[in-house]
């Protein structure tokens, strides 16, 4: 991370925090929704984009964080409950990740699909802990003696997003982060280089789980309700779409992707309100989301980040790319992976 990228990110964070604080509750809501989704996408990108471990349990993991933080919050832990949620998620993430030490690629992905369904089932069943299908009503976070409002949440969430980005960017540049990349490219090579593959994977799961939990905790506090329906497989798909649209293996890309996936439906809906039928608006929204995913994967599989980089390169500004947080080492072009037949 260069000083320049740090300053750009800081300026952006402050800019968005101000937008969230000053433009009314609806904008505040959009700003913190994007910020929260971004934290989730960052965490998922660590796992999929950097370490190459495909998971479909992200939705449920975020749910674990939400319930963890919600329960701690209701017990009066205040802001510390965000940490509780994050730690819960990290532990569960580790548990989900354990099969990754034996399974690879596709088979591991399917095992995470199972984890997603089983965890979501547990949310519904563990009535004493989660209040079952009714959902856990979460007490508001107190700020200056009053429940925090949307504007304050916007600032808090943008702040936490900035911190998360900072921490993850640092980690990616250490040996821990480099180990992730090698494991992604080839476990065989990693072993040959003396990387402890099992350890790298465990670290990736812990790290990713922690931030997924943070994302969940923020969801719990901002929406004031943790209910199982919010953490179904659809959330996992949305999150994966974010990192694909933004760019696999790019932290900045995760944030752009999260913004895109969160705001696109709203934009389409506003435009669609000119249509006569309410059914159709929703259908178009969904359709656009599907088409977006397909088109990105077909035309620009490395996401908006790569697209932007290409455009800038054409303008001759390639040398001064201002997307500093890309994984600049490693080929970036990720080879056809072991699990697929050519």
């Amino acid at each position: 991370m260069t000083k320049r990228s740090f300053l750009v990110a800081l300026a952006l964070a402050i800019g968005f925090a101000v937008v969230g604080f000053e433009s009314g509750r609806f904008w505040a809501y959009l700003v913190y929704s994007v910020a929260i989704a971004s934290i989730g996408a960052l965490s998922l990108n660590i796992l999929i984009g950097y370490c190459g471990q495909i998971t479909f349990a992200q939705g449920a993991l975020i749910g674990v964080g939400a319930y963890g933080a919600g329960i701690a919050g209701n017990a009066g832990w205040g802001a510390a409950s965000l940490l509780v949620g994050a730690v819960c998620s990290a532990l569960v993430s580790l548990l989900i990740g354990l099969p990754a030490l034996r399974l690879r690629g596709l088979y591991f992905a399917i095992s995470t699909l199972a984890a997603q369904f089983i965890l979501n089932y547990l949310f519904k069943i563990l009535q004493p802990l989660t209040n079952g299908v009714s959902g856990l009503v979460v007490k508001p976070l107190m700020l200056f003696g009053r429940p925090a409002n949307d504007e304050q949440y916007a600032v808090i969430c943008v702040g936490l997003l900035f911190l998360s980005w900072l921490v993850l960017t640092r980690i990616i540049q250490t040996n821990v982060g480099r180990a992730f990349l090698v494991v992604r490219e080839s476990e065989l090579v990693a072993r040959g280089m003396g990387v402890d593959v099992a350890r790298a994977k465990i670290q990736a799961f812990l790290l990713s789980g922690f931030f997924a939990g943070l994302c969940g905790g923020l969801i719990a506090f901002t929406s004031r309700l943790a209910n199982p329906e919010a953490f179904e497989i659809g959330l996992s798909v949305d999150q994966t779409a974010m990192i694909i649209v933004g760019g696999l293996g790019s932290l900045g890309g995760s944030i752009i992707g999260a913004g895109f996936v969160t705001l696109l439906p709203e934009a389409i809906e506003r435009l669609g309100e000119l249509l006569p039928s309410a059914d159709l608006i929703s259908a178009f929204r969904e359709m656009a989301f599907g088409i977006l995913i397909i088109l990105f994967l077909l035309l620009e599989p490395r996401g908006i980040v790569a697209l932007a980089r290409r455009i800038f390169a054409r303008r001759g500004a390639a040398a001064r790319t201002n997307l500093p947080d890309r994984a600049s080492y490693g080929s970036g072009a990720i080879s056809a992976q072991n699990g697929r037949k050519a």
Binding site: I48, A109, L248, R285, E286, G290, I293, I294, L297, P301
Partner: peptide, 20 residues
């Protein structure tokens, strides 16, 4: 030549599209 995750996601995209 895409990665597994991309291929899985493209089929999920198809699922979303056909549902819509």
């Amino acid at each position: 030549k895409a990665q597994i995750v991309s291929v899985m996601m493209v089929t999920l995209g198809l699922l979303i599209f056909f549902r819509a």
